[in-house]
């Protein structure tokens, strides 16, 4: 009998220990690998992870670096990312970039370097190819290595990115994302606005006044007490959008700068 108690006691201890062992979460839990490549010259393997496959619009991504010799995660490095679209059209070659929110810190969060990209078009064919040029300078090294990772970007439906041209001729890329998936109730909403300087360069557009109005097109009603997005950082405007029920919603957006107004909308369904 005593033995049985001792056994039970040990079992409990063991179970408790096992639980403790799980306390540090796997950084890749819930994520899938999008692409990987080596950065030549700095003996580093670069992996790209995301929650879902990539599609046009805002995509939250994570870079993970491994030392290709020791296979240990690299947790401190200065990373710069350039998305590049290579297009072949009737024998002509053309390339352009797209807005990208760079990693904020050179320190990894649980081995992950988060960044985001707003893809303005799909690219998953021989003619249209997206890739990331990731330049890495590891802590303690002097050399900067560049890794090229091919990626596939699918279309999103309904469209999660809009390209607008203002009356002044500014070309804007507007996208949105929800830090927490949309649900009935109050939702944090972030609108991303970037201004295109040239084909390869996009900069945050910080000087717009945004007004967002949710609407259910099937019903013609909206929702009360929304908070218009206000500029935060990295081209992101943060606000609150309220959904009173599930279904198809449209977020109407009004962007105003020096008296000029431009409108667009995003449809979404949950």
């Amino acid at each position: 009998m005593k033995k049985l108690y001792a056994f039970a006691f040990l079992l409990v201890i063991f179970a408790a220990c096992k639980k403790d062992g799980n306390a540090v979460p796997d950084p890749k839990e819930g994520l899938q690998k999008i692409s990987e490549a080596y950065a030549p010259g700095i003996s580093t393997k670069v992996e790209l992870w995301a929650k879902n496959g990539l599609s046009t619009g805002y995509n939250q991504l994570f870079v993970i670096l491994y030392d290709s010799v020791s296979n240990q995660a690299v947790t401190k490095a200065v990373i710069k990312i350039l998305p590049v679209m290579n297009m072949e059209m009737n024998g002509m070659h053309m390339s352009h970039s797209t807005p990208c929110v760079q990693p904020e810190s050179d320190l990894a969060e649980n081995t992950l370097f988060p960044f985001a990209a707003v893809f303005t078009m799909a690219g998953n064919t021989e003619q249209n190819k997206w890739s990331f040029e990731i330049s890495i300078k590891r802590d303690g090294q002097t050399k900067t290595g560049i890794a090229r990772l091919g990626i596939k970007v699918g279309p999103s439906s309904p469209e999660r990115v809009k390209m607008l041209t203002t009356a002044e001729g500014d070309k804007l890329v507007v996208a949105y994302f929800f830090p927490i998936s949309p649900k009935i109730g109050i939702n944090e909403l972030e609108i991303i606005v970037y201004r295109q300087q040239n084909l390869m360069s996009f900069v945050p557009a910080e000087d717009y006044l945004l007004a967002s109005t949710p609407e259910m097109p099937a019903m013609g009603h909206g929702s009360p007490n929304n908070v218009d997005p206000a500029y935060a950082k990295n081209g992101g405007y943060r606000g609150k959008v309220n959904f009173t029920m599930t279904g198809d919603w449209r977020i109407n957006l009004e962007l105003t700068r020096s008296g000029q107004k431009i409108t667009t909308f995003f449809d979404l369904s949950f």
């Binding site: 009935i184 019903m219 009173t244 029920m245 599930t246 279904g247 198809d248």
Partner: peptide, 13 residues
């Protein structure tokens, strides 16, 4: 209440 609009997702609240 669940509403079923034509050609759109069901709406629930």
């Amino acid at each position: 209440m669940t509403m079923y609009p034509p050609d759109a997702a069901a709406m629930f609240m």
